[in-house]
Amino acid sequence: MAAPHDAPNAGELLTAVREWLERETFDGRSSSTRFHTRVAVNVLSMVEREIALGPDQAIRHRERLTQLGCADDHELARRIRDGEFEQRQDEVRALVFESICDKLAVANPSYVDDEMGEAGSVV
């Protein structure tokens, strides 16, 4: 995939390690080791998703920043803080929400599905 490197590519190597961790290291270990193994598996899964989704997400993120006239998230954060987007609040919120969803798609895609009806309502 990423010449000059031979197969497997970076993502496939990670998958191989993650699968080994899932297969081999859960039984007969202390609860702390099992917990930290589970965390390690989650981290590797996250990096696998980032390798798969990251390039397209980076392009979309660049487009969002361009639409708002910002070079990067530092500038966007600063200009929101300074109140520069008072006239474009809905637009800024919608674009920022898109980035949140992209981040979640890599970090924890089930977070959105797990959400329950009562979140956001008070009674």
Binding site: D73, H74, L76, A77, I80, R81, F97, I100
Partner: peptide
């Protein structure tokens, strides 16, 4: 760390 989302929430 830049967090535009938190800037909106803080406002």
């Amino acid at each position: 760390q830049p967090h535009p989302a938190f800037e909106l929430v803080i406002r």
